[in-house]
Design a protein around this nucleic acid. Structure first.
Lengths: 208, 208
DNA sequence: ATATTTATATACCGATTGGTATTTATATAC
DNA sequence: GTATATAAATACCAATCGGTATATAAATAT
């Protein structure tokens, strides 16, 4: 059973939508929502504006599609780390992988969700709010995981899951700024190690 | 001896430059370099463009003047905290005052130096680099202070001054993002307390 | 071959961007 | 008074912003 090629009538698209979205993602990632211009997209992708708009909608729709690709691809580690077996391992994996990811030379430095629309004009208020929701989302993902850990007993009884999640999110967001400012992977990993030293592992349980 | 009023010939300026610069600072602080438009300045200050340009130069010069006012005014606590008597007190003062400042309702949330030009188009690359330098500046200010503390003996012998400074800077930058995302002062103060728990105070010296 | 469908390319749109040339108004110096 | 110096106000500039109307090219269905 070979892969069926969907044949549709009409002139075939000359560019690969997936590739194009990847390139758009990189541009938004590097320059932010406001700093990326539609002209830059069309020049980089080698297509003209009507094709871009027909394929992806307007600038904001393009951003949302790129953002979805970002969370499903480069930033997917966030969803993965919460499946680590203990709270400590979740925190460790989150910080290590964040440090590694944020300084990866194969893509723009820093996190798109953190930086793409922090300070922005009024016209793009929707995007700013969207990213705030995304940031709240992964923080809550960690918080929920740590609540489970508290019940499971691999967190100290007096540990505060929400606070721990906010600490990790804050470190991540700070590390994102640091990566953009030129911090190295080694520096961020050292920060991660230092922060993990005080992790409130339950005193009577082994961390594995 | 009364205050001498500088009398200069020529039509007197109808607006207060200091007030105007404060208003410009707030706009840059809230919307970032790219997100703030010249039209917004002139409308808010109640002056027209030629007056703005005559008084402050172009947009980038206005930003630099506003930035200088920011560091000398709202953000002056950074210079102040390094005069605390011990490394721990420096760290504590820095994080507490950062948490308080970043969530102050009397001005935009977050730190202008962190957020005003993180992700930005090519045309404003100068400003982005300028803010990177400012961030490196206050981190180094802390690092130098902690090197002194190491010599003075109020830091553990194996403590790493540069790393500690980077940790504080990273927490500050993360807290800035958090403040912009809606985190409360109490949440940021709790983060600060948690982070201070592992401060490597020298074991044989009292912290006062 | 023709109709239909979809993507392309060119050209254009009004609005806004940062920045200025020009004129007019208001002060002091003489 | 007149000259000089400075600021304000109006109007304007080219360039870019995000977005689209229109016409043409290339595919399939019949």
């Amino acid at each position: 059973m070979t892969t069926e090629v969907k044949k549709s009538r009409g002139r075939p698209r000359v560019f690969d939508m997936d590739e194009a979205l990847d390139q758009a993602l990189f541009i938004f990632w590097e320059k932010g929502y406001e700093g990326a211009s539609v002209a830059e997209f069309t020049e980089t992708l080698g297509i003209n504006k009507p094709s871009l708009y027909a394929a992806f909608g307007n600038k904001e729709a393009l951003f949302q599609k790129a953002l979805a690709k970002y969370t499903a691809g480069p930033a997917a580690f966030v969803q993965a780390v919460v499946r680590e077996p203990t709270a400590f391992k979740v925190a460790q994996a989150f910080l290590y992988q964040a440090a590694t990811f944020l300084t990866d030379a194969t893509h723009p430095k820093g996190c798109m969700i953190v930086q793409a629309a922090l300070s922005i004009g009024d016209h793009a208020g929707t995007v700013k709010q969207l990213l705030i929701q995304y940031r709240a989302g992964y923080e809550q993902l960690l918080a929920t995981r740590f609540e489970q850990a508290l019940i499971a007993g691999d967190l100290a009884e007096d540990a505060n899951p929400q606070l721990l999640a906010k600490l990790l999110a804050t470190l991540h967001q700070g590390m994102s700024v640091q990566a953009t400012s030129g911090a190295t992977r080694e520096e961020l990993l050292a920060l991660a190690d230092f922060a993990l030293k005080q992790w409130p592992t339950a005193t009577l349980k082994a961390t594995a």
